[in-house]
């Protein structure tokens, strides 16, 4: 027996770490990965709430979050590749001009 609050606290911790990584990291790929971490943290609370309310809707929402994350990864990584082709850097601070 584990209180459902433990799962929610874990989810909150992971989300906060994700936000911190999003702010402090400079590499554009790592920043993108911290978004995935935040999405994962939210998924954990969806599943915990599904268990708590004995309702499968939470699982369905996780499914949709994963689909959106997959779409986002495909487009985001394509953008990263095209940025790298023009700027030859992955540091977000060096990508500060709208036009070369």
């Amino acid at each position: 027996m584990v209180p459902v609050t433990y799962y929610l606290v874990l989810s909150a911790i992971l989300f906060t770490i994700g936000v911190a990584a999003f702010i402090f990291k400079r590499n554009i790929i790592t920043i993108f990965m911290s978004i995935e971490l935040m999405l994962n943290a939210v998924n954990l609370s969806f599943v915990a709430f599904a268990n708590m309310h004995h309702n499968l809707d939470g699982h369905i929402f996780v499914f949709f979050v994963m689909v959106v994350a997959a779409a986002e990864a495909a487009v985001g990584l394509a953008i990263i590749i095209s940025v790298f082709r023009t700027r030859e850097t992955l540091n977000v601070d060096r990508v500060n001009l709208l036009k070369l």
Binding site: F24, K25, R26, N27, I29, T30, F32, M33, E36, A69, A70, A73, A74, L77, I80, I81, F84, L90, N91, V92, D93, R94
Partner: peptide, 24 residues
């Protein structure tokens, strides 16, 4: 799938150690 894509892009672009600049 998603993380394999990330690892693939990191390997493809040969991303190195991140540097700290003004923005950090």
């Amino acid at each position: 799938a998603i993380m394999v894509l990330f690892v693939f892009v990191i390997m493809l672009l040969n991303a190195g150690i991140e540097e700290h600049t003004e923005g950090s």
